[in-house]
Nucleic acid binder design. Structure first.
Lengths: 147, 147
DNA sequence: CCTATGTCAGCACGACTGATATTC
DNA sequence: CGAATATCAGTCGTGCTGACATAG
């Protein structure tokens, strides 16, 4: 059983490594980088604090600040003060940001969807079924990273 | 159905981006970086040309050269001339490189296996079942990338 | 006084493009 | 001579740590 786990770990790492540069090359087609789109997606549902963005992205606060400054310079997000706590900075999506995000997501998802279309229905179901598990796996790996 | 595909594409891209980042940070615990291990894995089966390494890794030739120089400085690979073409440089794994590669792979698989262990059996099965599909997905994306 | 939050400064790594040799 | 191969030089993006100001 432990042997199976090692093998599964190796195979999972393998496909992940492969997927790295594939996704990167797809994302390279657009104007906004992957990381920035990720940040935009986070603030899509409403204003977020810088520290929350950092936590969700799995990066440090200064790195999040840097991204936010870039996005603000591009007019895609706005920074505002929190009424109840003057230390926090709330980051929200601008209308332009909403448009750009929508465009970027549509373009990237279209590329991926095209690839998914060439899979069989069974294979697509397998990918779909694995997503919650991989998500949990990410959480576990993220928790380890904290220590 | 097309709507489902778009949504699946988005969720898949999301977890992938996250997973890639996490795996990289876990790998940071070791002495050799993810990219360098990938290169070592490539030359594991025999000498390769710099341009072939670049192509397999999905990076440009100068970037590959840079990696190889680092690996050579660390004594993990050796550069040699090709008898039939004086322009090409063949990169091969040294004995030390083989040891370090083996160690690195084992350590990384162990980390991942530990994370997998915290999943339920059902979740592990879901991940396992998705691997062939994701592998195929990678191939499709890779084929698109060629054009 | 101590903690939390965010920003700034400086650094490291890894990719890229452009400019050379060198060889085919 | 033009194409292919590899390298060097310089740049950029994006993460990090450490230091700092400000607010709780």
């Amino acid at each position: 059983m432990s042997e199976n786990l090692e093998e599964l770990a190796g195979r999972y790492r393998e496909i992940l490594r492969h997927a790295v540069y594939l996704v990167r090359s797809i994302d390279a087609e657009g104007e906004i980088s992957t990381g920035l789109v990720g940040t935009l997606n986070m603030v899509c549902g409403g204003p977020l604090r810088v520290s929350d963005i950092a936590k969700k992205a799995g990066i440090r606060v200064p790195s999040a600040t840097e991204q936010i400054i870039k996005l603000e310079a591009a007019g895609l997000v706005a920074r505002s003060a929190d009424a109840s706590d003057a230390r926090v900075v709330l980051v929200s999506l601008t209308e332009l940001g909403r448009q750009k995000l929508s465009d970027a997501n549509a373009r990237r998802n279209a590329s991926m969807a095209a690839a998914l279309r060439s899979l069989t229905e069974t294979e697509r179901e397998a990918v779909k079924a694995a997503i919650p598990a991989i998500d949990k796996l990410n959480s576990v790996l993220g928790a380890v990273r904290q220590s």
